[in-house]
Design a protein around this nucleic acid. Sequence first.
DNA 1: ACACCCATGTAACGGGTTACATGATTCA
DNA 2: TGAATCATGTAACCCGTTACATGGGTGT
Lengths: 196, 196
Amino acid sequence: MKLEILILGLLNFKPLTGYDMKKWLDTEGRFMRPQTHLSQLYRTLKKMAEEGWVTFEVEERDVQPDLKIYTITPVGQQVFLNWLQSPFTPSFRYQDGALLHRLFFASMLNSDQVLDLIRSELAYRKEQIATYRHRDRTIYEMQPTNIVDEDKVPYYLELIHEGGASSIDHYVGWLEGIIERIESDLVDTENAVETT
Amino acid sequence: MKLEILILGLLNFKPLTGYDMKKWLDTEGRFMRPQTHLSQLYRTLKKMAEEGWVTFEVEERDVQPDLKIYTITPVGQQVFLNWLQSPFTPSFRYQDGALLHRLFFASMLNSDQVLDLIRSELAYRKEQIATYRHRDRTIYEMQPTNIVDEDKVPYYLELIHEGGASSIDHYVGWLEGIIERIESDLVDTENAVETT
DNA sequence: ACACCCATGTAACGGGTTACATGATTCA
DNA sequence: TGAATCATGTAACCCGTTACATGGGTGT
């Protein structure tokens, strides 16, 4: 996920300084993407301001550096929504969290859009399992060098593969679970409206 | 994981051309790191050859480009082993696969080294769970913009958090499982030796 | 006293992505 | 005939990392 997009998404909740964003990125946001450095943040914010996606107000302070409080502009909101609603292609590695990045901003989508996202991720993973689960994993014809213990190669390969397989199964189970949950919450809401 | 290291690791099994590596990276290796582009591969191989980590033999062909078959050098093996045996620090996001990268080459380590790796990953994850599982996840005081449906924010945040929590629990279970398995396989091997 | 937090940045470097370049062979 | 595979690469760009720069306030 691009840093720019994440910043825009964040600014939909509240105006922030670069330093504030960094704090968020280091805690909650730390599960979404690798560590983000302040230097990169400031550079990115500068560019985004130049492009008109964000504006900032300067809060002057005597000795310490002035505060720059960034706010999202209508243009920035449009850029963000364009991303959020752009066609979703699951990434090969579910660990990349492509779905998660969108889900994090699901409060800006309607429930059907959210369900579509999750369903297409689910379909992709199921297909991936069908394709890769039982494929041949022997490491081509080997001519191992002295430092490889040849007997152990398939042993560890198998461990890793089992771990990967069970993780993705678990993930698929989660996807199925949240689809059900969102669907049933939807129905509840509709009923609540009907009986009003 | 740096591409250089992965290349060195691969070449411990068998000499390969750049194109061969690409094929492996696109299939088996595709689960270990994001997609690798040929242009990057060739650039990296060039640098590695200059540094003396790999050598190549040219197999000339009439019309098509000549084949360059890369082999790891003793220097390259040393660089690789230095990495493999360097102190292991788990990465904040288990999805980054820092452990996996080492485990993939576990056939070049002894069982104790492998167990140490897994145990330190396990300890790190358990601590991480203790720290983050029940922390406050409310998105600071919000001043949401028009496009955010404020009611839904905590709903989706909770979904995501539950998914993350259960994934890491699952991962921890896997870690505990393989430790047990490797330990018991170790004992079996020792017994087999004793009764010889 | 010392370390850490606050708050801003610039510059150089490194690695991954995209675009460009070439051209034969194999398969549907 | 057209698409995919084989097989090599260079150049420009973008984004992320590391190092450098400044300096007051807060907590132990």
